[in-house]
């Protein structure tokens, strides 16, 4: 699955163990072009699809479709493509579930104009990445945060964390998973300027 890494910054950093993970060319493209759209995408999904519990699933499905297309040929420009996928998916769903999200469809048509605009959030991210990361870590539940800080910032191994805190390794392992999961949602899924999800 892992293709030869690009000879860029990411692969160069690989000598530092546990700092970064290698990404293939396709993966690097996906991370650079698609994931930064997640905050806007989620906001759009929230507006157009009332069933809040489905949002992660919709987002995941949009990613899958985009990824599968990109495997053959990278769509360009990316942003309108991703939002078109989102639109089609919602229309599919609405038809299947006999729900007609009229506002959503109307919204989508207007969106055609806006999708090309670079989002201000992306600039904010670029400007103050470290502050953003710290704020995200800050919002983890206390126990989880403590473990993630020891692992990611202090560079301890799982076993070392368990010994240091006097807790089972399974707990450390679970909390690290939970922490990463939550960080992904916070760092990709939320609008920096718009605050948290409802």
């Amino acid at each position: 699955m892992v293709e030869a890494p690009e000879p860029d910054r990411e692969s160069a950093d690989l000598v530092h163990e546990k700092l970064v993970v290698a990404t293939s060319d396709l993966e690097t493209w996906f991370i650079r072009e698609v994931l930064p759209l997640e905050a806007d995408l989620m906001q759009f999904l929230r507006r157009s699809w009332q069933n809040g519990s489905d949002l992660d699933d919709l987002c995941q499905e949009i990613y899958i479709r985009t990824y599968e297309v990109a495997r053959e040929k990278r769509p360009r420009p990316v942003r309108p493509f991703v939002f078109t996928v989102a639109r089609n998916l919602i229309v599919d769903r609405a038809r299947r579930e006999h729900v007609v999200p009229i506002e959503a469809v109307a919204d989508l048509d207007q969106l055609g104009v806006a999708v090309d605009a670079p989002s201000p959030e992306r600039n904010a991210i670029a400007r103050d990445e470290l502050r953003l990361l710290r704020a995200a870590i800050d919002r983890l539940p206390p126990r989880c945060r403590e473990i993630v800080v020891l692992g990611r910032i202090e560079g301890l191994t799982g076993r070392e964390i368990a010994v240091r805190l006097g807790i089972p390794e399974t707990t450390v392992s679970y909390q690290l998973s939970v922490g990463l999961y939550a960080l992904a949602d916070m760092l990709f899924g939320e609008n920096v300027t718009g605050g948290k999800r409802p």
């Binding site: 990404t23 991370i31 994931l35 990361l133 990463l180 760092l187 990709f188």
Partner: peptide
């Protein structure tokens, strides 16, 4: 990929 990205970002 998404989780790798967040890992690399942190």
């Amino acid at each position: 990929i998404r989780i790798k990205a967040v890992w690399n970002r942190t």
